[in-house]
Amino acid sequence: MGELLIEAKGLKKYFPVQKGLFSKNNSFVRAVDGISLAIKKGETLGLVGESGCGKSTTGRMIMRLLAPTDGEIWFNGKDISKLNNKQLRETRKEFQMIFQDPYASLNPRMTIRELISEPLIVHKMLTKKEREKRVHELLEYVGLTSYHANRYAHEFSGGQRQRIGIARALAVNPKLIVADEPVSALDVSIQSQVLNLMQDLQKEFGLTYLFISHDLSVVEHISDRVGVMYLGKIVEITDKESLYGNPLHPYTKALMSAVPVADPRMKRERIILQGDIPSPSNPPSGCTFHPRCQSCMEICKTVVPELKEVEPGHFTACHLYD
């Protein structure tokens, strides 16, 4: 560990808001508003946050499924945010994605063999015979067997489909896998199987994961480091132990207090946030969290807090630690 695989700097994504037929659009939804993060080789970075906080948009920008409005994405020493279409297509074999909904992400008109071999065909890897072998190999990696190859996705359960999705992502030996809520559509009993599979594969192939989820316990299970997002920004990012053991940002504290604990006698204070997540098209001034923050100070209403290293390796964007 140590070498950076991917680094995003000042990533922004603004979606224009269409107002009317003739008016120019001059307002934007700031889905992601200046995010910087780095993932080391072989590491898993978890990204948590409420729905609508921009975590999926971040994942999609890193996958370059969305073009960032601003910012740079350095992957293995290349800025992939500036590649043209053809270069981008070729680079895509380096990073693959696992999608949230295993029912929608597999083409219902293709057999499993076609689905898994598609990345190989697209990148002109292996001959037909070798591809066939590779498909069987991949199916076995993910806990399926060769005779599933001729079937269609609708014949499988959610967990099995997600395994197929993983096999498809693995086919071209990518370095980075962006997993966008890969288990949130699955039953709890299947979730852990898929998570364990992902961890086993990581060990075996030295994969690097960007793991996006709203489920704190899932993220704790799989991640090495965790970033907490709120309204298009990272408010706290650090390794798993210090985030779960010693959260600094008031938003993280509130999130942590919401995780259920398997001990009915344990008493603890739950921080209940007031109000809803504000609209990203019109975010609050200063620290975007200040209207809901329990330790809000005067400065929070006007000055945007920067992400600062408060303890070694522990970054947070909060004026409490200035």
Binding site: S105, L106, P119, G165
Partner: peptide, 25 residues
Amino acid sequence: SVYVESAISIGAPARRIIWKHIFPG
């Protein structure tokens, strides 16, 4: 649809996406 997004994410060219993923639908 997500499966078209998935095809883009593996790096499939437009021709393949139109012909293999959209046209059959």
